Computed example of a mutant assay.
Amino acid sequence: MPRRTLVLGGARSGKSREAERLLAAEADVTYVATSYPSGSGDAEWDERLRAHRDRRPAHWATLETLDLVALLDAPGGPLLVDCLTLWLTRVMDRHDAWDDDTWAASGEKAVLAEVDELVAAWRRTSRRVVAVSNEVGQGVVPETTAGRRFRDLMGRVNTRVAAETEDVRWCAAGRVVGL
């Protein structure tokens, strides 16, 4: 069994279900939710989160955090990280890296440092870990500079994590179509 698996795909491609399937037989999985918490007033988002929660085995623990480095470095059972895309979004939020001036002044350095830390922790982890990430570079070219910045960064994160991963899976239309 591979120690690290990265499950990639577009929106609604089946990547989360595939990640969950890979760890379904494990007893002590920690599901690491990197998304924005529910209760934000966005009913559609809250419904997405509820559907994800309802699909998970009841015995899995859920942890809502962005501190992936600490989890990857800690001993313990398998981790399912869903997802690196929302992790990067929230890291960019934390450093106001959507703003061009902030990006140039400090955001780029801060975000890239966090990406470096994540990749290093992914490389050295001894835990079984499955991470989900969106492939955002195959769609429409974003209209804004910040959107293109995010698309490019996400591609770099996926490439760097994949380079340290024994098992990379590509999902489309609800199926794994490439390993």
Rank of each mutant, 00 (worst) to 15 (best):
E166T: 09
A27S: 14
A162R: 10
R151E: 05
L179W: 13
L22T: 07
A173T: 12
D42K: 03
E143L: 15
R123F: 01
E135K: 07
L112V: 08
L153A: 06
G174I: 13
S35P: 01
E64G: 10
S35L: 05
L79W: 04
Y31L: 13
A24M: 10
T165R: 07
T102Y: 00
L6K: 06
A120T: 14
S16C: 10
L153M: 04
R90H: 14
V91T: 14
V132N: 09
L22C: 06
L63N: 03
R56Q: 06
L179F: 11
G139M: 06
N134Q: 10
M92I: 07
L118D: 08
T89Q: 00
P78M: 12
R175C: 07
H52N: 06
D46S: 13
K15M: 11
E64R: 10
V168H: 05
D67F: 03
D101V: 14
V176E: 10
K109C: 00
H59K: 11
L8I: 12
D73G: 15
G107E: 09
D82L: 05
P142G: 05
A120N: 03
G14H: 05
G155N: 12
A74Y: 09
E117P: 01
S38Q: 13
G14N: 06
G174Q: 11
P57H: 11
S106G: 01
R56T: 05
E143C: 01
V32L: 06
Q138E: 12
E47Q: 14
L72T: 08
A146I: 02
A113E: 14
W45N: 01
K15Q: 11
D167K: 02
S13M: 10
R90C: 00
D96R: 15
V168P: 04
A61Y: 00
P142R: 05
W170C: 00
E117S: 15
L118K: 06
L84H: 05
G137L: 07
L23V: 03
G178W: 11
V115F: 04
L86A: 11
R53I: 05
E164R: 14
D96M: 08
E108Y: 02
E18G: 01
D100Y: 02
R3D: 01
R169D: 04
S38T: 12
A97W: 00
V129N: 08
A173C: 15
T30V: 15
A70P: 00
R128S: 10
T85D: 02
V136N: 05
L86R: 12
T34W: 10
L86I: 12
A51N: 10
T159P: 00
S106D: 12
P2S: 14
A172L: 14
E117A: 15
M92H: 04
A51D: 04
H52F: 02
R175T: 04
L179M: 13
S126D: 15
E135M: 08
S126I: 08
A70I: 02
P78W: 03
V69D: 04
L22Q: 12
R50G: 00
W98M: 03
L118H: 07
R151K: 13
V136C: 07
V140L: 15
R56S: 01
M92N: 04
R151N: 09
E135H: 03
T144F: 02
E64W: 11
D28M: 06
G14I: 09
R128G: 01
V161S: 04
V111Y: 00
E166H: 07
S126M: 12
D28H: 11
L71A: 09
A120D: 14
S106H: 13
M154K: 00
V130W: 07
